[in-house]
Structures are given as C-alpha cells and as structure tokens.
Amino acid sequence: MTPTPLSFREAVREAMAEAMRADPSVFLMGEDIGVYGGAFGVSKGLLDEFGPDRVLQTPISENSFVGAAVGAAAGGLRPIVEIMFADFLTCCTDALVNHAAKFRYMYDGKLTVPMVLRTPMGRRFGYGATHSQSPEAFFLHVPGLKVVAPHSPNDAKALLLASIHDPDPVLFFEHKLLYDTVEERSSGDETVRLGEARVVRPGRDVTLISYARGVTLSLEAASALVEQGIQCEVIDLRTLAPMDVATCIASVRRTGRAVVVSEDCLTGGVASAVAVELGERAFEYLLGPIARVSAVDVPVPSGPVLEDAVMVSSEEIARQAQHLVRSY
C-alpha cells in the first residue's frame, strides 16, 4: 500500500468524525464550528455529515456553553467542546475548574463528566497577547482534569479518540503552528493511552523533554547538535496530566542531563513542573542542573521581531544542551 499523508488538522477532524459515527451520544459544541468550520477549519465538513443538532454552534457564551457541556455529559451525552483560542479558557474557567473537574470527586461518583474540551494554543505570527498564550500549566494545578497536548498528527488522532472515550474531563490542546504539519499515516488502529510519553529520538548525552510544538523545536536542536558530536534524546510528553515522569527519569538515568522545553512563560510553567519532578526523583542521576527553556515572562507581543525575541527557539535549546554536555 502506498503511504498516505495525514495532517494534524485532518487527524483531529477524523478522530471527531469517527467517534461521532460510532457513538450517537458524541456531539460537538462551540463557536463558528458549523459552516465556517471553526476558526482554524478543524471541523470543516462535519456539519454536512452530522447536521446542526450534533454540530451545535453556540453564541459567544463560553462559561455557559462549557457548563452546559458539563451538564450534558452528566446527563449521558459525550460532548466535544471547541474553545476558539486557548486564551478564552479564562472565560469558562468556572465551568471547567469548579464543575467539570470536581463533579466525580465532590459528588462521590454520583455525577461524572465524560467530556473533551479542545482548544488551539500557542503563538502564531503576531496574533498578539490575547490570542497567543499557552495556558496549559494553569490546568495542571486542577485535580480532576486530564491535560493532553500532542505533537504528531498520528498521536493527535489516537489521543483525541482516547480522550473522547475517557470517562473523565480532558482538556486537549492543539498548537496552532502544528495544524498544517503532515506525516505518514500510521498503519492501523493504533491505540494510545493517556499518560504515556514517547521517546521520539534516542540519544545518550542529554535528554530534551517537551510536548506539542516544543518537540519540533527540540528535534531541530537535536539535529543541529549532531555535527558537534552531541546525541540528544528527545521525549514527547504527549499528556501533561497525568504526566509520565517515569519515562523522563529512565532517560535521565542514561544521559545524566536534562533540558525541559515548553513554549509557555517560564515562571510556574510546564517546564517547572517537569523540572521539579526530576529534581526530586532523579537527583542522583543528574550530572548538572536541570535547564528550562521557556518563553520570557511577558505577554506575547504582536510584532514579529518582538515575538521572536521572547519565544522559545531551537537555537536556545541547542545552547542549553551544549552547555550541559560541555560543563558537566
């Protein structure tokens, strides 16, 4: 069989369509997800196949339609909600944090919330401060939420299907700059479980740990370091909560060095969460300090030169990795 390509955007759309064909209780909710196909065209075509009851386009009422998804899930449906930009999660945080995340525990399993909230995050060519954030770390602090942020198209499809089938609420982040990335479609019905990281490139000198587009940047850094004789191992976390720290520790045990890369801002970010786990649980294997590479602690500026100046670059990742290898 000739290999067929799969883009990240198609992967997400296919996962939703397959889940909707298989289970009539699965439906979509969100702003402009019908004819428009969502702000990034992810749900394009689904209205034609499934109709307006199952591709339920909502007014601009984020907290209430996410809350309604919580109620619909508690009432036996399986909603997939799209929030147009991850920045707008601030507009539905009550529904997500006080309701979706807490129902199972607080009501002792009497009400449960099998829903997925999908949202595009990350920078993209000057969208500015309120359309470029990577707020995933906020939600690592909320017990009861699972947080997924895939890098590859095949993982995006498998992980979204796993998220839809999951009996608990899942927050699914899609990096805007990954939508057009393409890879060869994987062979079959590969299932991926939430909470499992993947070693995407093996290496013996230093471990680069990241997720979503940070994996792209880490792989670029790893390629650049080859000619200096530095072999990087690159880990794609894939799921941020629950986090597969064991895979990271196993790698650091071999390499003795770790660079954690996340495109959110540095303080209290995902890289900090990973670094603390390694500091506590892998200290004896580390030859030097854990390096974090994240965005500068400022709102994301709009102008392209300004944006580049504060965002993560593969050059900085390579610099940090090289420094660790040379110094320790």
Partner: peptide
C-alpha cells in the same frame, strides 16, 4: 444554571 441547560439538552 448551565448544568441544568446541558441536562435539558440531553433530555
């Protein structure tokens, strides 16, 4: 209130 809206949607 949104929870009730969602339950009504399911109903």
């Amino acid at each position: 209130i949104p929870i009730a809206l969602g339950l009504a949607l399911a109903a």
